[in-house]
Write a protein that binds this DNA or RNA. Structure first.
Lengths: 225, 225
DNA sequence: TCCAAAACCTAACACTAGTTAGAAAATAGG
DNA sequence: CCTATTTTCTAACTAGTGTTAGGTTTTGGA
């Protein structure tokens, strides 16, 4: 049995992780193959052994970014009992979305920074994946509405845009070592469902401060606003 | 009276507007002086008569982006009567924020695309301006809370991040000719204050479709999700 | 130990970037 | 019309871009 092409998956991932970090910091056009190579402890030419072009690399990064979120949310929803309420589903989806984008934060941020500059064909494919994810949320909201859990005047499409916008923005300010994902998810769900003036049954948020988190190089801050 | 330096403000603005559109589409690194020149019907070298460098240009674009929002929101708040409720202030601020980022959409989008790639010093200054705007919102929410309009468990900081995240994301999906800014603002305020399950007094959103809007070249879509 | 496959490196190619100096054109007041 | 000022253009320079061909080292099984 001749196992011909079996590129070391680990060094390929090293390149990919490095690419995500550089794309995250410098966007698509601002990223040079030489910078990625530096980050991965390689020379520029060597990258082409693993990926056949810069476009090939950014494609892989973009796909991982959205797929991590989609898979995580769908798994979380599937693991809920059939008896779960709309509220429970929404809260679970928010938590799953948050933990996914924090987990693969480099890829998520790289997407936000680079997607707008990427060649048309690449962006089109990724956008299709993202729209598909949007329809998952549309379904969650529609189900909850049908169950009578929402006021009749609620505009589900606008609500979805509102929720996903707020969630996607979290990567800009969320820093590990501060608030826990669970707390943020709970409060977000509470705002979306009960509103700020409503009488949500939400417990007060405990300001936990876990281990100070290793000081890795992090993305440039964009400010909360 | 020797009026020496009085550069035509109009052709300077032509360059600036062109720069905003190109930065919006290609980010900071992806934007070339030659592309800006093309958009402004000039040759690359001529830009340097109005702005002394690429960094000088992006700085101007970034500042306009955040200042338009800050000024518009503060003006809207100031125009309210002292008797205005917290809800009214929040709704007014949302509407003002939305109309500002739609109005100067090229500059706002350029900011979102380019800010992360811009040289440190430039970003730092702009980030300070943005944080300042965040504190305006913090004050709006704190006032409403003190007036007893919020449930006691509400976390104002998270709520602010949530609201501003959702608002900033609107530039990705809002297109003139569809929903009106007023409708979006009203529904957003309703979600934030009453929640989806609360019994807000919000009127049903009318799906108005005004004049089809001139077909200018628009930013590449990023998908709602 | 030997050797083929895998992984990486070197050095270069064609091209494009921001920027500049100086010439040319447009403009406006007298 | 003349001329001084403002505005734009031309043409180039240096530095850095993605990519490639071909050589070198490393690796792991026989």
């Amino acid at each position: 049995m001749t196992k011909k092409l079996a590129k070391s998956a680990i060094s390929q991932k090293r390149v990919l992780d490095a690419a995500a970090r550089i794309f995250r910091d410098y966007g698509y056009a601002g990223t040079t193959m030489r910078a990625i190579a530096d980050e991965a402890d390689l020379r520029a030419g060597s990258i082409y052994y693993h990926y056949k072009s810069k476009d090939d690399l950014i494609s892989a990064v973009l796909d991982i970014g959205i797929r991590a979120v989609t898979d995580n949310v769908e798994a979380a929803l599937k693991s809920l009992p059939d008896t779960a309420t709309g509220r429970e589903r929404i809260e679970a989806a928010i938590r799953a979305h948050l933990s996914a984008i924090i987990e693969v934060g480099d890829y998520t941020l790289a997407t936000r920074r680079a997607l707008g500059q990427v060649p048309e064909a690449i962006r089109a494919r990724n956008t299709r994946m993202r729209d598909q994810y949007g329809s998952v949320w549309q379904k969650i909201l529609a189900d909850a509405h049908e169950r009578g859990e929402f006021r009749t005047s609620a505009n589900l499409t606008l609500a979805r845009l509102f929720i996903l916008g707020a969630l996607n923005w979290t990567v800009e300010w969320f820093k590990p070592g501060g608030r826990s994902i669970d707390d943020v998810a709970r409060e977000f769900a509470s705002v979306v469902l009960d509103g700020l003036s409503g009488n949500g049954a939400t417990a007060a948020i405990a300001q936990e401060v876990p281990p100070p988190a290793k000081a890795k190089r992090s993305a440039p801050r964009i400010s909360a606003a």
